[in-house]
């Protein structure tokens, strides 16, 4: 009885449009963007001696996982225009690739050029996010 009531309430909420309106392409780009900003900010703190190396390494590992999640979400995307998915794929993959390389190298080797690469990935993600919004 209680389970039925809860399911009915869930259905009503879903039908009244309370769920998210973003599509998978937008969500994945936003997730990848969040991962890149996070890694960039932590990397900047490390270069300014304001965060420990151990912490920043965890940040890069977590960012890489987040970018990989964004890629996976795109692979499983259905009901979205293929062109939107392809556009999102291009920038999300590129961002994940930069994060992968920097994480693999270890944050001990991080320098300004690494941060510049992250900024470039971020600019691309921002541009595509804007495009998908239109």
């Amino acid at each position: 009885m209680v389970a039925r009531l809860l399911l009915a309430l869930a259905a009503v909420l879903a039908l009244t449009g309370c769920g998210s309106t973003e599509d998978a392409a937008q969500r994945s780009v936003a997730e990848a963007r969040s991962a890149v900003i996070f890694a960039h900010d932590a990397g900047r703190l490390l270069l300014n001696d304001r965060a420990s190396r151990a912490y920043v390494q965890v940040v890069f590992d977590d960012s890489l996982d987040q970018a990989a999640d964004a890629e996976r979400d795109l692979q499983g995307a259905s009901g979205v225009e293929p062109q939107r998915v392809a556009t999102a794929h291009r920038v999300v993959d590129a961002a994940a690739s930069v994060l992968d390389e920097l994480t693999d190298a270890g944050v001990g080797t991080l320098d300004e050029s690494g941060l510049t690469r992250l900024q470039a990935a971020l600019r691309e993600l921002d541009a595509v996010a804007e495009e998908l919004e239109r």
Binding site: I37, D41, A42, R50, V58, D62, Q66
Partner: peptide
């Protein structure tokens, strides 16, 4: 900056900043 917390490392980033 559009970072939604999903990990503990993100929780403490403002503290380091």
């Amino acid at each position: 900056i559009g970072v939604e917390v999903g990990t503990l490392s993100q929780v403490v980033l403002p503290v380091a900043e």
